[in-house]
């Protein structure tokens, strides 16, 4: 399965939930804001959404800024 994460194509060996994608990338789910095919997803729903071929994920966070 190949999806687009933060603009880059990434390949996984199977379809996965958002939670599993974050875990496989070793990203801290607490810090992340996820946009799944242009829809913002609540943290409690990370296990509900399955990432499939050609889906687009944006993984965002808050950083210092003024």
């Amino acid at each position: 399965m190949k999806c687009i994460i933060n603009g880059d194509p990434l390949a996984f060996d199977r379809e996965m939930t958002i939670q599993e994608v974050l875990a496989s990338l070793e990203l801290d789910a607490e810090r992340i804001v996820v946009e799944y095919n242009n829809v913002l997803i609540k943290k409690k729903d990370f296990n509900e959404y399955i990432v499939r071929e050609s889906d687009r994920l944006e993984l965002l966070e808050f950083v210092g800024g003024g």
Partner: peptide, 16 residues
């Protein structure tokens, strides 16, 4: 005040 950015997927050591 703070900003929103893409998370770095490859350089997770970047300080935040």
């Amino acid at each position: 005040t703070f900003a929103v950015r893409r998370m770095s997927l490859y350089d997770r050591g970047l300080p935040n």
